[in-house]
Design a protein around this nucleic acid. Sequence first.
DNA 1: GTTTTTGACTTTCTCTGACTATAATGTGTT
DNA 2: AACACATTATAGTCAGAGAAAGTCAAAAAC
Lengths: 154, 154
Amino acid sequence: MSSSLSSQITRMLLDMLEKEGTTEIRRNDLAQSLGCVPSQINYVISSRFTPEHGYIVESRRGGGGYVKITRVSLDSPTAIMHAVNSAGTSIDPLAARSCILNLLSRGVIDKSGARLMLSAVDDSALRPLPTEQRDAVRASILKQMLLAYGKDDK
Amino acid sequence: MSSSLSSQITRMLLDMLEKEGTTEIRRNDLAQSLGCVPSQINYVISSRFTPEHGYIVESRRGGGGYVKITRVSLDSPTAIMHAVNSAGTSIDPLAARSCILNLLSRGVIDKSGARLMLSAVDDSALRPLPTEQRDAVRASILKQMLLAYGKDDK
DNA sequence: GTTTTTGACTTTCTCTGACTATAATGTGTT
DNA sequence: AACACATTATAGTCAGAGAAAGTCAAAAAC
C-alpha cells in the first residue's frame, strides 16, 4: 500500500523487531541507506513506536550513539493494554488506585510492583504540583510504569 | 552493543572489578594497550565510576603511580536513606537514573523494581509537565517509591 | 486539514592533546 | 649522611573538535 518513506521505515523496523523483539540502529546509517534525513527516523519512531503502541525506545547521543527499540511483550496483554488505555490522558487518585489494585487482584502484577506503582501515583508524591496538573501527570506515569512492567515478563 | 572506546574500557574495568570488587591499573599501560590517549581513561572513570555509581577512586601520580577503583557497598536501609536524601527536592533525569541503577547494581533493589522506578522518573513520563517543573516532581515521586520499597523489607 | 518530509539549530557524549601537578629517583655538594 | 636540586615517571585538568542523536517549525504531500 502506502509506500511512503515513513511506511518503508516502519516496515523495516518491524522486520528487525520480528526476530529479536529488540533492535538497535545507528540513526544516521539507517537514514543514509534510505536516502532521507536522519530526523525522519525520529518522526517514525515518535509516531509509530510509542509506549502506547507497545514499544520502549532508548538512545544515546555522541560518538558510538544508537537508538534501541524494544517491543513490550506482555503476559497479560489485554489487561495491561486496557489499563493503559483507560488511564487516558488524565486520571484521579482514586481511579488510579483501583486500577492498580485491580491488576494486582487478577495476578497481572505482583505485590511489590503494585506497592511501587501506588506510591508513585499517590497524591503525596505529586505534592509539588498544583492540583489541576496532577491527574495528567499521574496518568502519564502510570502508563509508563505499566508498560515497563510488561517489558519485564519473560 | 555500543563498541565505542568508552564502552570497551568500561567493560574492561567492570570485568576486573567483578572478581575482586577492587582493581588497580596503570593508567598509561591501559591506554597503550587500547591504543588511546591516557586521559581517555580519566574520562571513562569520571563519567561512569563516580561515587554516584557506587565507586570510589584513589590514585597516585609520579613514579609507581596507579589508579585504584573500589566498589563500595552499604547495607540496604542505609543505602535507601542515602538515596532519598541525595534526591533532595529536585533531581534531573540523569541523576535519578543513576541513583536507581546504583541501587540495582548493589542489590538493594531488584531488576523489576528498578524498571518500574526508571519508567516513572523518566522524562517521558513527566512529559505533560513544563520542563522547569519536572525535576521537583521527579524527586518527590522517586523518594516516595524508595520509601515504599524500603517498607517492603525483603 | 492532517500527515510527512526536510533542514537548521541544539544537546549530549566521546576523544584528543597540550599543559599542569605530584611522586620517586638520581646526582652533586657540604 | 644530609641536603638541595634536577630529572624522570606518572596521573590530572581542561578546552576544543568531532560524532551522534533530539527538537521544532515550516514546507510539501496527501
